[in-house]
Design a protein around this nucleic acid. Structure first.
Lengths: 197, 197
DNA sequence: ATCATTAGGAACCGATTGGTACAAAACACA
DNA sequence: TGTGTTTTGTACCAATCGGTTCCTAATGAT
């Protein structure tokens, strides 16, 4: 009935995510996005409305591509000891940086950027950070604490871990030394271990 | 010998700091800066070279206006118990947000933004974060730990506190709830207390 | 009063910004 | 082989970006 789309929507979104991840929302220009997505202006506006809507779409994609997997690490019952799950997540942050990837976290950069003045973006950012928190809470609940921690304590520690996660990812983006980050991660893990034993 | 400057350099820099603080480096436009500083283009470029150089100048100003005072809180020997100094700093973050100030921290926003692709800005950002770290380390050293902590442990905890500080400030900027931040702060403080006792 | 020197301010610069208009192209269906 | 419908790509848009030019204004020294 009509001309079919020539590009793969998923690949295009994958490309857009890469561009936003690297440059951040505001610093990602339309030409950046177009070349990263392998499409032209007409197609972008026809398929994705505009830059801001595209970014909102990408945030949801980042949920499934990055947040969800992180939460799965934190809730993976195959690793019975919850602390080990948290360790795994934080160590993976160090590993990613060690491989030379200094993009940090698209979500955290959005928190520092457009979430401040764009209510809708802000809401999504908060929602995804909340999701991370539930992951941390689940892991803490599964920790072999000598005495089971009260719910309020777990929530509090989960909030702290989210804060720490955001801080780490921002520091990665600012090219902080791997040694400093490693030292920081060791400290959070050991302090939490001390608290849960 | 020549026409004297009509504006007060210090007031102009104060205005520029306010604009950069609110909008971040990239999002602060020249008209924003000019009206915030109360001067015109000619004066800005004559006195401060260009936007980027102005921002570098402002970062140094932020050092004396915000980082230095924070470090002074952390090293204030009138508060003999180091943990109390750390508490004071973190509680002040909550208080600032409670007053409706969601700008966060100019330094932390720079870490999330231009520090990633501008080496010189990145160096200054790292330097100032390092300064924060020395403050935290001094406070930890002055904590009444049952047994004095080894130097390496102190450094590690200081790195963690810097990470947490950055995370908190970014979360403030993203309009995270005051309850979540309070919960997070309570957790860091109590976990560190547990470690140092 | 003259002069050298600097500040101020507006006009202007090319480049880039995100976004739109529209004609050509490619398909499904009749 | 039309015909209707949608995609694609390009030309174009006004607005804004950071930055420069240049003329005038204001000063202190001579």
């Amino acid at each position: 009935m009509a001309r079919p789309r020539e590009f793969n929507v998923d690949k295009a979104l994958e490309g857009a995510m890469g561009v936003f991840w690297e440059h951040g929302y505001e610093q990602a220009s339309l030409p950046d996005l177009l070349s990263g997505m392998g499409i032209t202006r007409g197609s972008l506006y026809k398929a994705f409305t505009d830059k801001r809507t595209l970014f909102l779409t990408i945030l949801e994609r980042y949920d499934t591509m990055a947040v969800q997997p992180a939460v799965e690490v934190l809730t993976n019952e195959e690793v019975s000891e919850g602390m080990q799950r948290i360790e795994k997540l934080f160590h993976s942050i160090l590993e990613i940086q060690n491989k030379g990837d200094n993009r940090g976290c698209l979500l955290c950069s959005a928190a520092a950027g457009p979430a401040n003045y764009d209510k809708e973006i802000g809401k999504v950012v908060t929602k995804l950070l909340e999701k991370m928190k539930t992951g941390f809470a689940a892991a803490l609940l599964a920790s072999n604490a000598k005495k089971q921690l009260p719910a309020k304590k777990i929530e509090s520690l989960a909030d702290m871990l989210v804060t720490n996660y955001v801080g780490l990812k921002i520091l990665v983006r600012s090219h902080a030394s791997n040694g400093m980050l490693k030292s920081s991660v060791n400290a959070v893990l050991s302090t939490i271990r001390a608290e849960t034993q």
